[in-house]
Nucleic acid binder design. Structure first.
Length: 730
DNA sequence: TTTGCTTATCTTTTT
DNA sequence: GATAAGCAAA
């Protein structure tokens, strides 16, 4: 093994990285920009620890996703031959979960607690609100998502509900008692059914450590070396856990970039990274300012994006790589043309033998890629979608899971409700009366299997009861349980989804098979909530391009990256308020820094809102740092007047598309179009026309790039000359 | 009274 | 596509 450790660290790391890797004892904070080799630094530190003879079991590697930890350990293992496998690597949630199971006695928890995922939490709030009656609906608290996020905020907010309402939801202060009551019911519900939500995992583990000094000693002497990735996205509870587990040795290294903090909505606090030196006063701070990922033209552009941030420590990254081109921008007419444009470019890239897995399309929200998905399918381009709607949020998977949960606890109200609602002619009221009867029975399953009623659903309920009874009495595998339950479920599936029950059934069979690896239900259920697989087909395709939400793209990189739908309302998202805009900007920064070679920025001119306004983030980039796409484009372009008369029609139709010259310089119909960004061609009083706003008069030259135009029918608008594609009429 | 079908509306982001 | 609201039917 010692030969392996002649590994020449110096050749692979720069001086700053080397300094971090060699700082074995005491706390170290590495502050670094995108593409600076943070992850690489952590991997090499892992190697270095092993080289120094540190027991792998005493190393704790905390990352943002489970996958990130796995791939880092894999990379380290490749270099030294598998010895890293005993390193504990995973998310804070996975770590807390494991520890709580191991030390459930200290935590005062039921050994078989299960984990609630996001939709479970929302369903429970739904149930509670329904039980509390109608007055809640009147109070505008009916949005279960709001209640779920409120509960999470309270868990992450050490000061409690009242102060949270006082600081952020003043308008709800009058409802304090009611909200408090709902949140208490939620806590009670979880306690009764031995359930923990994601926040509970962290809070309970931190408090268990806090309250048990002997456990604290045990754990902190076991994990002697702690490494934390993406520290800017930790919340205060996670910071507490790090501090406690670090113990007296404080052999901790955290890496992060305050400019990439994008999880404030989830309680992450990028100020954590600033407080690190206060929590660990003797810590070493190392800055990495070289960028290895991309080229200088791309960096100039991303530097410009983040320089607009209101509160950030201005880092200016310098590229190590030579050459490269500035990012391309393009203004497709609408979302369909955008999809067409992206698909065309991807096809060209694939024809040039760019590997599919080196191409990614990024967007703000999961549903923004719908048009593109259809277009890619049309071109037979395989893709893998990350983020957005989770697979296990599909109704049929949730049904199957609920049925399985009933085999553990037949009276778990949420699962029982979900299962019984599947039966024809059973609705909310009937469920409630069945539930009341079952609760008061000596043996609920026995009652269910022999339920007396005149209603048509008698046999269906009895059959479910019988199946659950058999499963209780025979100890077969989870997959067997699923197959038995499926006999009951399948007819309902067919009735509920006559259109696509085939597809759903295929999903289900694969889902059942997935459970074959597990011997106990509790760990199966925990795993699918904590670490849901991206897709049911486990083979990962190397011939698929990636479609991803920006959040899911964190920490990754591709040769070619497209960022689509850069218009107001989509990115930044419609629902972001003033403070959240800053986080949206950092999100755009994260997206744009994923590209190694080529970055495309796509700004549709129309969409859900007609016309679309280009994203403020796009407009902030000096136009000279980018190039407009001039290459081939075979997209269709609609006639505006036709489109206008069809506004009421769903945008999904291509029927009224017309072939028309494209927007770039070769157009014959747009001879006077001003395609560069120079406003000097315009004078006040000049007559111009815009393809959407119509005719108007220039009223003001705002800057070298922006002018104001008063349109006869659309009022005064400030236009970006490079974007607006104005025709000069006189 | 309860269920179930049709229609309209809206869709952040994640452990 | 999911879901809530509104209305018809049992």
């Amino acid at each position: 093994m010692s030969d392996t450790f002649n590994f020449p660290f110096e050749k692979h790391l720069n001086n700053e990285q080397l300094e971090a890797v060699n700082a074995i004892n005491g706390p170290v904070l590495v502050i670094a920009g995108a593409g600076s080799g943070k992850t690489r630094t952590l991997v090499f530190r892992l190697l270095n620890l092993i080289r120094l003879g540190i027991n792998p079991e005493s190393i704790l590697l905390l990352t943002f996703t489970r996958k990130a930890a796995a791939s880092m350990i894999e990379r380290a293992s490749e270099l030294i031959g598998g010895i890293c496998n005993n390193v504990f690597g995973g998310t804070f949630h996975a770590f807390s979960h494991l520890m709580l199971r191991r030390y459930h006695g200290y935590a005062g928890l039921n050994k078989d607690f299960t984990i609630l995922d996001r939709s479970d939490v929302q369903d429970i709030f739904n149930l509670i609100v329904k039980q509390k009656g109608n007055d809640i609906n009147k109070k505008n608290l009916a949005d279960k998502r709001f209640l779920a996020s409120l509960a999470s905020r309270v868990a992450n907010h050490n000061a409690g509900l009242l102060s949270l309402l006082e600081t952020e939801f003043l308008h709800l202060l009058n409802d304090y008692e009611l909200i408090k009551d709902i949140l208490e019911s939620y806590e009670e519900y979880k306690k009764n059914s031995a359930l923990l939500d994601f926040d509970d995992l962290l809070v309970r583990w931190r408090d268990t450590l806090k309250n048990n000094p002997e456990l604290q000693n045990l754990v902190s002497s076991h994990f002697k070396y702690i490494m934390v990735d993406e520290y800017q996205d930790t919340n205060t509870i996670q910071a507490d856990i790090v501090r406690i587990v670090a113990g007296k040795d404080q052999n901790i290294m955290a890496v992060g970039d305050d400019s990439q903090s994008i999880y404030a909505f989830r309680g992450a606090n990028f100020k954590n990274i600033l407080e690190f030196p206060h929590i660990f006063p003797n810590c070493r701070i190392i800055k990495l300012e070289k960028n290895y990922r991309t080229t200088q033209p791309n960096l100039d552009c991303t530097n410009a994006i983040i320089s607009c941030a209101k509160e950030s420590f201005h880092k200016r990254l310098v590229a190590v790589r030579d050459g490269g081109n500035p990012p391309f921008y393009h203004f497709p007419f609408d979302e369909l043309n955008q999809a067409g444009f992206v698909a065309e470019r991807i096809k060209e890239l694939l024809d040039k033998n760019v590997a599919p897995k080196e191409i990614a399309v990024l967007f703000r929200a999961g549903f923004h890629s719908y048009h593109l998905e259809a277009e890619l399918a049309k071109h037979n381009i395989k893709y893998e979608k990350r983020g957005g709607l989770k697979l296990f949020e599909a109704a049929h998977i949730k049904d199957a899971t609920a049925l399985l949960k009933l085999t553990i606890n037949p009276l778990e109200p949420l699962s029982l409700n979900r299962a019984l609602m599947l039966v024809n002619k059973i609705g909310t009221k009937t469920v409630l009366s069945i539930y009341e009867n079952l609760v008061s029975a000596d043996d609920p399953l026995d009652l269910m299997a022999n339920y007396e009623t005149k209603a048509v659903w008698k046999e269906s309920l009895r059959e479910l009861g019988k199946i659950l009874k058999i499963i209780r009495e025979t100890h077969t595998s989870i997959t067997d349980n699923f197959q038995m339950l499926d006999k009951w479920y399948f007819p309902n599936l067919m009735r509920l989804y006559p259109e696509d029950y085939h597809k759903r059934n295929r999903d289900l069979q694969q889902f059942y098979e997935m459970s074959a690896k597990y011997s106990d239900k509790v760990s199966f259920l925990s795993d699918i909530s904590l670490d849901p697989p991206e897709s049911l087909s486990s083979r990962h395709d190397n011939d698929s391009i990636i479609l991803s939400t920006i959040h899911s793209a964190k920490g990754l990189e591709w040769k070619v990256v497209f960022i689509i739908s850069l218009c107001e309302g989509k990115f930044p998202s419609q629902s972001s308020n003033y403070e959240e805009i800053e986080e949206e900007r950092r999100l755009f920064y994260v997206a744009s820094t994923r590209a190694k070679d080529v970055l495309f920025l796509l700004v549709p001119q129309s969409g859900a809102n007609f016309p679309a306004i280009p994203s403020r983030f796009f407009q902030e980039i000096p136009i000279k740092l980018m190039n407009q796409w001039k290459g081939p484009q075979n997209e269709l372009k609609r006639d505006v007047s036709v489109l206008k008369s069809n506004i009421g029609i769903s945008s999904g139709h291509r029927a009224f598309s017309l072939k028309k010259p494209t927007l770039s310089g070769t157009d014959s119909g747009n001879n006077n179009a001003v395609s560069n960004s120079d406003s000097s061609k315009f004078k006040i009083g000049l007559n111009v026309s815009h393809q959407i706003f119509g005719h108007g008069i220039v009223t003001e030259i705002v800057s070298t790039e922006k002018i104001k135009v008063k349109f006869h029918n659309a009022g005064e608008k400030t236009l970006h000359v490079g974007y607006a594609n104005l025709n000069i009429l006189s």
